[in-house]
Design a protein around this nucleic acid. Structure first.
Length: 330
DNA sequence: AAATCGCGCAACCGCAGATGT
DNA sequence: AACATCTGCGGTTGCGCGATT
């Protein structure tokens, strides 16, 4: 029953990733696509465990990630969603396409939790709709669907302290998420790597696993993780894969948040980014699994959530909660 | 100017679900 | 159907940096 650690101690590097490692990882994924993480360390020569590689990619290197500077809207959304979903960061992250669950989790723990505890009363810090201890994490969507009544009851309780919460919408969110929208969180790694389109040369080959280290060491530019991230941003952007998140404006500025030092770096657009005919399209990378049809509700949800003064106070939470359980238009 | 403290973030750990054999 | 492996998720920790004393 005891599962061996994903990576044995010996020979496995831990701690912060270096830009060189980042580039190696990026290069590999660029060629083969994400997935099959088990093979990544072996095939790249990285002295990292597969888990670490995956984490690094999903939380940091993946294109389309916005870092830092949470907007007020995002903040609100997180608070609301946390109140409904509890600490299901991945689920919450599915509503913030450019944010990672780790990022949201950190932001919650460092900013919002404290904020709510001190200022807004501690009610919100104790989410009402936490799943019961026995619940199975990966199936929260289904649970939300089947146990919607339970959630409604919990919400009713929660509404007392959280008077600015929009219950019905959140309920709908949950319902929307349930059918599977939220599953998209987990970077569609459905073994997407296997079918890598034999990415011939282009940019990717320039930074093949063997190259980057030397390049980074000798090149005139400074290699930073931000560069890599930004580079990927542009890359994915060119692919038209991002489509911008509906409710969260300004995706492009993402990696550039405050990191002016990185601007000196010029990848020349050629260093890595496969401007034309790039090898792997990361359409499924940027919080992908939410198809456009299902993203529609998102903007609606967000506008609904953020439009506090206009709508919410017109509705009595109790009556809303008493509405028919599953009559959601989604 | 130096030391201490607190905060924020990146990364790790372990569990559990999903998938493949 | 059972087992093994892989992947995803949430909680926690450790380090670096800035603020304060």
């Amino acid at each position: 029953m005891v599962r061996p650690p994903c990576c044995d101690k010996e020979g496995v590097k831990k701690g912060p990733w270096t830009p060189e490692e980042d580039l190696v990882l990026v290069s590999y994924i660029q060629e083969h696509g994400p997935g099959n993480w088990r093979a990544v360390p072996a095939r790249t020569g990285l002295m990292r465990c597969s888990k670490s590689c995956r984490l690094r990619w999903t939380n940091y290197l993946r294109p389309g990630i916005k870092r830092g500077n949470f907007t007020e809207q995002e903040e609100k959304l997180i608070i609301h969603l946390q109140a409904l979903l509890g600490n299901r960061w991945a689920a919450i992250a599915s509503y913030l396409p450019e944010r990672t669950d780790n990022d949201i989790k950190n932001y919650w723990n460092t900013h919002l939790k404290r904020k709510l505890q001190s200022g807004g009363g501690d009610g919100a810090a104790k989410p009402p709709a936490h799943r019961p201890p026995s619940s199975s994490k990966g199936q929260w969507e289904r649970r939300l669907q089947t146990d919607i009544n339970l959630a409604r009851r919990a919400l009713r309780e929660a509404l007392t302290p959280l008077d600015d919460l929009k219950p019905t919408q959140l309920q709908r969110d949950a319902a929307v998420d349930a059918p599977g929208a939220g599953v998209g969180v987990g970077v569609g790694v459905g073994d997407g790597g296997g079918d890598s389109p034999a990415s011939s040369s282009s940019g990717a080959s320039q930074c093949s696993p063997s190259a980057p280290t030397a390049a980074a060491a000798a090149g005139p530019f400074v290699l930073t993780t931000e560069n890599i991230s930004r580079m990927l941003d542009g890359w994915a952007g060119r692919k038209g894969a991002r489509g911008g998140s509906p409710g969260t404006p300004g995706g492009a500025e993402s990696a550039s948040t405050g990191s002016s030092d990185a601007s000196e770096v010029s990848y020349g657009g050629a260093a890595v980014a496969p401007a034309a005919g790039g090898p792997v399209v990361f359409e499924y990378e940027t919080k992908p699994a939410v198809p456009p049809s299902q993203q529609m509700p998102l903007s609606a949800i967000e506008s609904w959530l953020f439009d506090d003064d206009n709508h919410f106070h017109h509705v009595q939470s109790a009556s809303l909660l008493d509405a028919a359980p599953m009559d959601y238009p989604f």
